[in-house]
Amino acid sequence: MIVAEQKPLEEIKELIADAERVLIVGCGTCVTVCFAGGAKEAAILGSTLRMATRLDGHGKAIDEVTVQRQCEWEYIDPLEARLDDYDLILSLGCGIGVQTLAERFPDKPVVPGLNTVFMGLPVEQGVWEERCQACGDCILGLTAGICPIARCSKQLLNGPCGGSQDGRCEVDESIPCAWQLIYERAKALGRLDKLLEIQPPKDWSKSRDGGPRRVVREDLRLTHRVAEVAGGER
């Protein structure tokens, strides 16, 4: 899932400073699960901002609505009917949600209420950790199911750097050394031989380094199918 955190209140106040009427849009998917931008968080932020802006002497009209998924047109389209009543949208979606709203509603300013932090999982109640960087060329099959791209501070592909000690990363004691984890798991699985091969330089063109990415499935495209059907009729 995508993990996000709410921005500091002061920053959010700055972002909405020019607006009189604000619609907070929560999202019912990832950010609900990580307690950052669901219906509950939207309601709390709404109350907080109403109170805070009133105390500052510029009380704003603030409402909240939460859609099931901010990153799909069909879930955000129904918002359009309400938008005339607002100067600005404060999105509590991830960065994708914010941009989906901005793209769909070109006349309406949209600002983020969250910082999108990573793709990961809750390892325990209240603790989330990063697991994937969407590098576009998955190597988990070589690294015992533990990703050094997302979890090694230096994204090493050939084993631990000299800063690994007692299972911890040199960058911060709270970070487990990904290569210690990889080593232990590979050893337990009897697959250490995989770690002895030299992994060549990674093809980063499949990652963000190749520019913004796009996935196209011709077999699923409606325009494509229409063309195909039309072609078949001819």
Binding site: S153, K154, Q155, L156, L157, N158, G159, C161, G162, G163, E170, V171, D172, I198, Q199, P200, P201, K202, W204
Partner: peptide
């Protein structure tokens, strides 16, 4: 070398590269 992580230095907000690791560098 791989290089010490930038968080230890005087530009901790820098972006690191790590396009290659030290073994790939030796090989190159």
């Amino acid at each position: 070398l791989t290089g010490d992580h930038q968080s230890f230095g005087n530009h901790p907000t820098a972006k690191n590269v790590h396009d290659l690791d030290s073994i790939q560098l030796v090989q190159m």
